[in-house]
Design a protein around this nucleic acid. Structure first.
Lengths: 252, 252
DNA sequence: TCCTTAATAGTCACTCAGACTATAAAGAGG
DNA sequence: CCTCTTTATAGTCTGAGTGACTATTAAGGA
């Protein structure tokens, strides 16, 4: 619609004396899920050079009539095979624009972080050579600067767990407090005191709400746990801080 | 260096079956300072359509061999007239990519927030029609989507004051605790209790350090205040929360 | 039946922030 | 010179919130 006509934009009206370079703009997605107490990331195996055979973050070009957010949601649906991604939490991380970050050409990439409750096996369809969930810990080097993007995404998600109700985005519609605590422990890589965690979560109005009369055997052993669903609150006041405080910011 | 050759990139090796649109990539800067207890923003008056006569954020194109960060720092130096911008705090906010945000063509803009200690009168040189400091409160509508960028920047800076030592970036090399408190009150638009603010700041190791024997008459009246300089700490644990809690996130 | 497991309930002490009051050191004005 | 005003600095008291515990309840397994 309002894009530069053709494929070789020369400076239009109002930009006459500015030189500008046309860049390719892409989105990269760091898609997380927690399964079996392990933090998993959705990655695709590259089929061609550069970085052939390496794992990389899913992503793709922003189309002429899309915003980066729209493109990210479209790619998310394509890569996961999920039909409905409207309810998923998708958050813009930051933009990576080092001139040499892609050896082929100048590519500016807007990175997003996404959180999925359960982990359906990825579709692997469309263009992705091979899409797969891999544990976050112990990943080898990724293609391009995706190591850094993924590290930034992990730090951002960990930080947002502290002062938002985002953790419920990792949980199915009905969950126990133990499962919610598992999300925190898995993302942070720490162990939390169970009674204190309960007290904190239940003392925050709107974080979770009890489903009356519902209970579930968790693991088959022990006392059945009450079921909760996500509440309407979005932020945590005061925050729920990590045991080892976040002295160190993101690895940026 | 590694950028696409020429001005009309067709899909190079490895991108063969992807369609992609070349976008213009720019940076926009929200430059803040605190002067006389007023939060001020650096704006330029547009000389040409669209939005001729409107105030806009300073910014410009990312050059072929620059990262967005480098471009932002270059623009910051150009617009403020400061010779050395290496020490200034510059932080990537987020990227704005709505297809219709610039009526002339498709422009993707990476927004940055910058904090200046004192406020030298802007250079106004180079290309900016007229650069000027204007108070943040009571600004009329800005050009393009710059209202939203500026609001996002304000929210981000306010939030970072809570859990980082960023406030010293608004202060000259030597400052009093009263001046530091003034920064918080001005950015947050609140009033803080002075003894409690002192206690909190001094109890955080590395936030500020006393300059022994130095004192300054603040306003000519009252007891002289001790002088401090910024310490080595970067984060605040626990945070210094706003009195009216940040229930509402950024206006995004 | 007893043991294990896991959820839930409750206690205690310490830290910290909000709301104060009190004192010290400067200038202004009579 | 004395007092008032102003601003910095010192200290007190209290309640909220959290970390580290112990105790109880309800399930399955040996």
């Amino acid at each position: 619609m309002t894009t530069a006509k053709g494929n070789a934009p020369e400076a239009p009206e109002g930009y006459d004396k500015h030189a500008f370079e046309p860049f390719a703009v892409t989105v990269d997605l760091a898609v997380f899920t927690v399964r079996a107490a392990v933090l998993q990331v959705l990655l695709i195996e590259r089929g061609r050079e550069p970085y052939a055979g390496c794992w990389a973050l899913p992503g793709g070009f922003v189309l002429p009539d899309e915003s980066a957010e729209t493109a990210a949601r479209r790619e998310l649906a394509e890569e996961t095979g999920l039909s409905d991604v409207t309810g998923l939490h998708l958050e813009q991380l930051r933009t990576y624009s080092e001139p040499d970050r892609d050896p082929r050409m100048r590519v500016v990439s807007v990175a997003y972080a996404a959180l999925l409750p359960d982990a359906p096996e990825p579709h692997g369809g469309s263009d992705a050579a091979r899409a797969q969930w891999l544990p976050y810990d112990g990943l080898g080097p990724l293609a391009f600067d995706h190591d850094r993007i993924l590290a930034d995404a992990h730090e951002r998600v960990g930080a947002k767990l502290e002062y938002t109700c985002l953790a419920t985005a990792f949980c199915p519609p009905e969950f126990t407090l133990g499962e919610l605590q598992q999300v925190y422990e898995t993302v942070w890589g720490t162990v939390l005191d169970r009674p204190n965690f309960r007290r904190k979560v239940l003392a925050t109005p709107g974080f979770v709400e009890l489903i009356p009369g519902a209970a579930r055997l968790t693991g088959g052993r022990g006392k059945p746990a009450a079921l909760y669903r996500a509440g309407s609150a979005t932020t945590l006041h005061p925050p729920l801080l990590r045991p080892s405080p976040s002295w160190e910011g993101p690895s940026s």
